[in-house]
């Protein structure tokens, strides 16, 4: 989480203060992050493993079973998860509540829609952008920790498999609403699960095509959502998304 936050702070510095292009800055952080992770992966491990992290079993989070609730059929699986998953259960409604029901949440959304107006209202646009970008980075770092500590114990090269990009499509699918992101996450998680199930069931479809499913699914979701938004004229995206705020431009 700390790493995620630091990387996000860098992103914020580049895009908010230095007004660099957000897409390119995000890209460069990705390139650096994967390069640096693979560098560290070959250095940080113990000497017994040739300093490599690959192939090591990490100390992992053990699933915590909540007595009673976990015995419910189907839904019981929700209560046999590790601590990060439980944190997610809490974070989703909390984030939603913060965004839509509190004053700072309103400020946050107004910065996204119209930073000039927000500035005029006395909101510190630059400070807020920093704060929320860093906070978001910390959450994403938590996601990475979940991958290496819980989902597959241990680290391997390219462990994320483009998940960080797929979530962008997820956010679009959820129309920027944390509550709807549950459905988005279930959809993309479902695609993953279908892929593994099909593989395990021994179909004739080559594994490589099954592995394409998450990526093709992402493209399909993007196309459908963009199309639907154009039809319904209902856009979830903040109006000022991707635009650097320049106070001098007023």
């Amino acid at each position: 989480m700390a790493i995620g936050a630091t990387m996000a702070a860098l992103h914020a510095f580049l895009t908010v203060t230095m007004r660099a292009n957000q897409v390119v800055s995000g890209l460069s952080i990705t390139l650096f992050g994967t390069g640096f992770a693979s560098f560290l992966g070959q250095r940080l491990g113990p000497a017994t493993n040739n300093f490599r992290l690959v192939g090591l079993k990490a100390a992992r989070f053990t699933p915590i079973t909540i007595p009673g609730l976990s015995d419910i059929p189907v839904a019981g699986a929700l209560f046999r998860q590790d601590i990060i998953s439980y944190a997610v259960y809490l974070l989703i409604p909390l984030t939603w509540f913060y965004l839509y029901k509190t004053r700072p949440g309103l400020w946050l959304r107004s910065i996204g829609e119209d930073p000039q107006t927000a500035d005029a209202m006395g909101i510190d646009v630059v400070k807020s952008k920093y704060l929320y970008t860093i906070l978001g980075g910390a959450l994403i770092g938590l996601g990475g920790a979940h991958l290496s500590l819980s989902y597959t114990p241990g680290w391997s090269e390219n462990i994320t498999g483009g998940r960080g990009w797929i979530v962008v499509a997820l956010v679009i699918f959820s129309m920027w609403n944390p509550l709807r992101s549950i459905w988005g996450a279930l959809l993309f998680g479902g695609i993953n699960a279908v892929q593994f199930r099909l593989q395990a069931s021994g179909t004739n479809i080559p594994a490589n095509f099954l592995n394409m499913l998450p990526y093709l699914g992402t493209i399909a979701v993007l196309v459908l959502m963009t199309w639907w938004e154009a039809l319904s004229k209902k856009i979830g995206a903040p109006a000022a998304l991707g635009v650097a705020y320049m106070r001098e431009d007023k």
């Binding site: 860098l10 230095m18 660099a20 292009n21 460069s28 390139l31 650096f32 390069g35 560098f39």
Partner: peptide, 22 residues
């Protein structure tokens, strides 16, 4: 040394570059 050092270096070129576009 890990060969990934090359990609670390390349990644590190981009940050000052982006900041420099200012």
């Amino acid at each position: 040394l890990p060969a990934a050092m090359g990609s670390v270096m390349q990644g590190l070129i981009l940050f000052p570059l982006l900041a420099g576009s200012l």
